[in-house]
Design a binder for these strands. Sequence first.
DNA 1: CTATTTCTGTATCGATCGGTACGCAATAGG
DNA 2: CCTATTGCGTACCGATCGATACAGAAATAG
Lengths: 217, 217
Amino acid sequence: MRDVTEVGDEKMAEKTRERGRPRGFDANAALDRAVEVFWRRGYEGASLSDLTEAMGINRPSLYAAYGNKEELFRRAVARYAEADMAYAREALAEPTAYQVIARFLRANADALTRTDRPPGCLSIQGGLSDGSDGGSVAQFLAASRLAGERALAERLVRAVDEGDLPTGTDPVALARYVMVVSEGNAVHAAAGADRAGLHATVDIALRAVPGNPQGAG
Amino acid sequence: MRDVTEVGDEKMAEKTRERGRPRGFDANAALDRAVEVFWRRGYEGASLSDLTEAMGINRPSLYAAYGNKEELFRRAVARYAEADMAYAREALAEPTAYQVIARFLRANADALTRTDRPPGCLSIQGGLSDGSDGGSVAQFLAASRLAGERALAERLVRAVDEGDLPTGTDPVALARYVMVVSEGNAVHAAAGADRAGLHATVDIALRAVPGNPQGAG
DNA sequence: CTATTTCTGTATCGATCGGTACGCAATAGG
DNA sequence: CCTATTGCGTACCGATCGATACAGAAATAG
């Protein structure tokens, strides 16, 4: 049993001085490289050779630092959620439901087409189908996406309470709709759609959201 | 060089009597099994052992009949498009743009959640990311989806010409929006969303479509 | 029948997969 | 210095990957 919980514990890194040979690479920087590989090639499509080459480390170093491929993937997804999905949490802070949704979908369209990042989004590119592992990765990613959907739903519940959304609005259904647009755009972005096209889709999608400037819903 | 074009040539099967030992399996029935395997596991996740077991044939028979794994996959996608996507072509025959879109999204939601089929849709489950092959499968599937999007766009162009959609409506953008909803729903269906949830999303999505009963757009 | 053609089944190919054993290098405590 | 501990690098593991060689079986043509 190896202890692999020290990645990301940089708070105590100064205090507890470890014995033995120090690690010759930055575990968090290497994880960022792993994120890119998984993002581009998916979980199954990313081989350990791809990963170690991109991360600049050897195979045993990878296993010592992260456990195994699936553990590395889960850490990569966690880091992705923290770094590359920060816009989603920021969007939830907008004052009205419409502003929350509009900001989320706009920022999402931008994030899906960043030129310094792989196209699309890791939680979809990572893998949708039951691979050779029996779907544990696909389920993990689905749960990760669902968590975001739930967070949005809770924000929309609050919006209903505050009278921000019309009475009778189903916040859960609306949240699911927003995520569907987001995920559909992610599929398009992965296929090479440009940023303007994604925003054109958001233009239309927002017409279905109560509180939009055109007054629909 | 083997001739692999005889699959699906059942029209001439009676006329041209081949020499040699006859094939011991139904090539089209076996292809249907292959569709299911690719649908559930994706292109990369489907091993030849998975395929031959489901198809009830041996490896050399598979290669003799279909060429190789990628050829088999392309044939499977073609068969899927013909059989499982028939509803999309039928939807295009509806008289108005709104009816076309509504029927498509409704039938799509049903197709994504058929209990006698894998959840989701093959053209997305097949694979989105650049696998070990360099993305040729992902590009093929993206092109396949884009073909459907273009067919819908052309139908909506006609709708604009016929005054069926408001002047100034962008039929290409609207078609892309509809496909985004469809693909987002496919992602949700693959994650286990039920039919009612998908239709609830369609309920909202349709509000953004010009000509809907609520009069938005 | 023989000759020819084509399909089937076994057994296997080299390559790559995820994952490790093991010896050496580099640090800390003594 | 010596010992303990840990990371690094090579070289390798068994399993599985997609793809085939080959021989025998099953059909037609003559």
